[in-house]
């Protein structure tokens, strides 16, 4: 069972995520959008959406730091285990709660604003369930791991080594199976979220418009890659230029 969950499932998830994203990018550029509903309702969105998005960005950074950077590195730099945990839990809790409140406002708005609710597809509803589950359980693990509720657990000795081991194709199944149930549940929901990611509106995150910072303001494009991509027929040669 552990092998299936922590040895096979991660690879299935990655395969679906990468394959699905590539497939959608190639097949469904037209459907690749935020599907914004701001046109219908702006007041709640302007509170909920930044709260959720900035919260989740901090959460993502937190995950990267917690999962990718080995415990040995931070202690070498001189950051004690306690100090690390205090900052991780503080930041994580603030960001987590911001995300939760944000998503709560957004879902409330989606349900109560008629036009927004009409524009909500089944796909969206399913995605919201998984997303909210991931956030709720994730926040629970943050509090659990800190020992605020229940027994303290250092996930950087179980989940993190397992996470890194996936990418060198030697999954450390044992480490993960020793993690508490909530961590395992959060990981499973996370994998589910990544598996459905390419097939929902979440894909807009993959095209975050960072190149905007570096491109010239006005974009010029030619109707075609260049003049005369095939040789002109006899008698139709371009005059002038």
């Amino acid at each position: 069972m552990d092998v299936l969950l922590w040895g096979v499932l991660p690879y299935v998830t990655i395969a679906i995520l990468v394959g699905g994203t590539v497939w959608r990018y190639r097949y469904d550029q037209f459907g690749w959008t935020t599907r914004s509903s701001q046109l219908y309702e702006s007041r709640l969105l302007r509170i909920g959406s930044p709260l959720f998005h900035f919260g989740i960005l901090v959460v993502v950074v937190g995950h990267v730091i917690g999962l990718v950077i080995p415990q040995g590195w931070t202690s070498t730099v001189g950051l004690s285990e306690t100090a690390y945990h205090v900052q991780a839990v503080t930041l994580g809790t603030i960001a987590g709660i911001a995300t939760m409140v944000g998503v709560a406002i957004l879902i409330y708005r989606r349900r109560t604003t008629g036009p927004v609710f009409m524009a909500t597809t089944r796909n969206d509803k399913g995605m919201y369930v998984v997303l909210v589950a991931a956030i709720v359980v994730g926040l629970a693990t943050t509090l659990l791991g800190a020992g605020v509720v229940g027994e303290e657990h250092n996930y950087r000795e179980t989940v993190s080594p397992w996470f890194r081991s996936i990418f060198v194709f030697q999954p450390d199944i044992e480490a993960m199976s020793e993690a508490p149930f909530t961590f395992q549940l959060h990981t499973l929901i996370g994998m589910l979220l990544f598996a459905i990611w390419p097939f929902t509106r979440l894909v807009h995150a993959f095209t975050a418009p960072l190149p905007y910072l570096f491109r010239p303001y006005v974009v010029y494009r030619s109707r075609t890659p260049g003049p005369a991509t095939r040789a002109p027929r006899r008698g139709w040669e371009r005059v002038g230029s």
């Binding site: 095209t207 418009p209 190149p211 905007y212 491109r215 006005v218 974009v219 010029y220 494009r221 030619s222 109707r223």
Partner: peptide, 11 residues
Amino acid sequence: CPSGAMYKRVD
């Protein structure tokens, strides 16, 4: 346009 999807045609 952040995505660079809008453009002015050179032609």
